[in-house]
């Protein structure tokens, strides 16, 4: 059984020599994952995070960007552990979007 992330030796095109900026939301994903895995919380280890995006399906793996994969894996893992539910995250997301749209239209 070979995971879809296990690509060493596969044929591929030229290396895309990109230097993309590290965005604030991406930093926040890393920061929150680090904090969730620290000695006081111990909620998500690095291996659990990897297991998350190595097992959530090749479609997601191919579709999501690097940090989005990690974010989705954080949510999945926290849900499996009973820390939160997707429903709770979705409810917050809807609120944040509403506030964003209000801000856009009024500001």
């Amino acid at each position: 059984m070979r995971g879809y992330h296990d690509i060493g030796g596969n044929a591929a095109g030229p290396v895309p020599k990109l230097e993309l900026p590290w965005l604030f939301w991406e930093k926040k994903v890393e920061a929150i994952r680090n904090l969730l895995g620290d000695g006081t919380r111990r909620l998500i280890s690095l291996d659990e995070l990897r297991h998350g995006f190595e097992s959530f399906g090749v479609e997601k793996y191919k579709r999501y960007s690097f940090y989005r994969r990690r974010l989705e894996a954080v949510i999945d893992t926290l849900e499996v552990k009973g820390v939160l539910t997707r429903g709770e995250v979705d409810a917050e997301l809807a609120r944040i979007r509403r506030e964003w749209e209000d801000g856009e239209s009024h500001g």
């Binding site: 991406e26 929150i32 919380r41 909620l43 974010l71 820390v83 939160l84 995250v89 997301l93 944040i96």
Partner: peptide
Amino acid sequence: VIEDDAGNLEGLHLIEAVQAVLARKGLI
């Protein structure tokens, strides 16, 4: 895989949502 502006905005909103849930539970 590279996010466009909409994808980056969605990523931002999603991590803010996770943060809000974790904060409400007193975890972070």
